[in-house]
Nucleic acid binder design. Structure first.
Lengths: 134, 134
DNA sequence: CTTGACTCTGGACCACGGTCCAGACTTTAG
DNA sequence: CTAAAGTCTGGACCGTGGTCCAGAGTCAAG
């Protein structure tokens, strides 16, 4: 079941070859075996695992998170998988809130700025130059 | 008007000394002058500028953005300042949307997962292991 | 004058997630 | 058999925004 070279694997999973080797260096994905020449060989399990990594990244997990998820999924510990997802969800919530605060700040400034006139009357510059906090 | 050493400047602006020097290396902030010893001296203008940088960063501008803003504010070109803020606002919008998509994905999975049982019944693992796209 | 606090420089190092390179070797298609 | 395409290794490098270090020199208070 080791029918794929690193190039085919990478192509099927939609990542770069170097990325596959990078994941190997970082203990996320090992080849199923090696040819006598040293060429890596991969099977379906590795392809699934690589796609797992891609999807988890798309969900906002870092590679360190994913390493954890892969370990947990090996251990078949559903409760901890769910917990990890909840932690990440809270993290994503926090990042969204922060960006929303930033967005409101920008919106206020953009709305208040007439887009012409003297610099002293530009609320964006004035806000950035304000004497008081943030 | 060059009454501050780098330590006082950093403290008043709420940044680290190394950060001030880093900004100098990256053409964001120069000292008003130097003592014969080479010690940097800063005045009120530099303190304002450093606080400007801090606030703009809090609004999600990168240092490269801020370099641009500082140039524009020197040029007193209000229209371009407003435009820069609009561009950044669109960028923040885009980042929020992306995170919201991620959040919905996570929410769906967390809701669907009972938190116990066999790994095969964990929708989180199943989604990450799915055969089809993404 | 001494002591402690401050500052100087240049360069190394951190996380993050890769990307790219040279030089050698191997596999595959024709 | 040959040539092209693929792969190997180890290490350097990218951008972002800093942080830390050593070793030397300087400033301010007592």
């Amino acid at each position: 079941m080791s029918n794929l070279g690193i190039g085919q694997l990478a192509k099927r999973a939609g990542v770069a070859i170097d990325t596959v080797r990078y994941y190997e260096r970082n203990d996320l994905l090992s080849p199923a075996g090696r040819l006598a020449s040293g060429y890596r060989r991969y099977g379906e399990a590795e392809l699934k695992r690589l796609r797992f990594i891609r999807r988890a990244k798309a969900l906002g997990f870092t590679l360190a998170d994913i390493r954890g998820l892969l370990t947990l999924s090996d251990e078949r510990s559903v409760a901890r998988i769910k917990q990890a997802a909840e932690v990440k969800l809270a993290d994503v919530d926090r990042r969204i809130e922060e960006l929303e605060r930033i967005r409101e700040g920008l919106r206020t400034l953009v709305k208040a700025c007439p887009g012409h006139g003297r610099a002293e009357s530009c609320p964006i510059l004035n806000a950035l130059n304000a004497e008081d906090a943030p």
